[in-house]
């Protein structure tokens, strides 16, 4: 039992990382008043961009020397992943802010795109629709953990400081609570919203890169498996606050790690264990919303701002 427990802690940290990155990204977006249900799609596009870029970069090298390790390649892949996330988040921002689309419908459309566009890309590069070619140059491990694990946990206090201790954070929260008031004080409401949504794309893209070139060594179709939605739920459960989000994602990460541990045992059939995180998410959300009336989303969340 004790060994199981000690095995669970690093596994928890690993499965918390993508959730934490994504949820923090979602927090910036929603604090600025833009619902970001597109997180799932952002992760997938980030993962795709990272995996394909890394594979393309190393392809010519591998032709000369098989299994060649080049230090800088995965970092460029990581950058590509982040940019992929930013690009797709920009589409969301453009639709929601410039064209005043319903934010949930726009996010859903992006998630649907993330289910089909990767297949088209994969088919033109690799001739199949389900996965990319495996890569050799994965992200390195620092003391057993991917650098993104450290980054994710570091981002929690940084986000807290940014959001609650800087003028920028105050403006961001003002834009999400009462955009008209913020605009009267000279805050560029639309600019803040664009920044926040792009920031969520950056973090979601990093989470995707973590999955495809950190955790695995290839892109697999729908590899995020609902992580974006769980992150969204964790963000609500964490009351749109960095430390709350840390706690919530640790809970979901631990469930995920536990589910992976249980897969091998005979406590429950594996197909049902896969559903556990989702059941837990629904339960937790319903529980927290009924218990406390304090959990209040940003007041202008999902509302279209006409300037």
């Amino acid at each position: 039992m004790a060994t199981l427990f000690w095995a669970l802690i690093p596994a928890t940290l690993r499965s918390t990382t993508p959730l934490l990155l994504t949820a923090l990204g979602g927090m910036y977006s929603e604090r600025s008043g833009v619902v970001n249900i597109a997180l799932e799609g952002i992760i997938l596009f980030g993962a795709l961009a990272a995996a394909v870029t890394t594979q393309r970069l190393e392809a010519s090298l591998l032709a000369q020397t098989p299994a060649a390790q080049v230090g800088w390649i995965p970092w460029v892949g990581l950058l590509a992943g982040a940019l992929g996330g930013v690009a797709i988040a920009f589409v969301h921002a453009l639709m929601c802010i410039r064209y005043r689309a319903d934010q949930i419908v726009s996010g859903t459309a992006i998630n649907l795109l993330a289910m089909s566009v990767p297949s088209l890309v994969l088919q033109s590069f690799y001739g199949n629709t389900t996965n990319s070619q495996e890569i050799v140059n994965r992200l390195p491990l620092w003391h057993g953990f991917s650098p993104l694990v450290y980054l994710a946990f570091l981002l929690v206090p940084i986000s807290w400081w940014l959001l609650f201790k800087t003028p920028w954070g105050l403006r961001l929260r003002a834009v999400g609570e009462h955009p008209q008031a913020a605009a009267t004080m000279g805050v560029d409401v639309l600019g803040m919203r664009y920044t926040a949504v792009l920031l969520s794309g950056l973090l979601g893209g990093l989470a995707g890169a973590y999955l495809s070139i950190g955790f695995l060594n290839q892109f697999v179709r729908n590899m995020s498996a609902g992580k974006g939605f769980i992150a969204l739920a964790a963000m609500i459960f964490g009351k749109w606050h960095p430390f709350g989000i840390l706690g919530a994602t640790l809970l979901f990460g631990a469930t995920d790690a536990l589910a992976i541990q249980l897969q091998g045992g005979d406590v429950m059939p594996p197909v049902l264990i896969q559903a556990l995180p989702f059941v837990l998410t629904m339960g937790v959300l319903s529980g927290v919303l009924s218990r406390t009336r304090q959990t209040r989303p940003p007041a202008a969340l999902g509302k279209i701002y006409n300037n």
Binding site: M95, Y99, D102, V105, S106, A109, L112, S116, L120
Partner: peptide, 26 residues
């Protein structure tokens, strides 16, 4: 040799553009 996922992508794009009001004026 183009995946039929193109159709799914088209549907997703339709959702996106309808949400944006067909990119038409307000």
């Amino acid at each position: 040799g183009i995946s039929r996922e193109l159709v799914t992508a088209l549907q997703a794009l339709i959702v996106l553009f309808i949400a944006a009001g067909g990119l038409l004026p307000g």
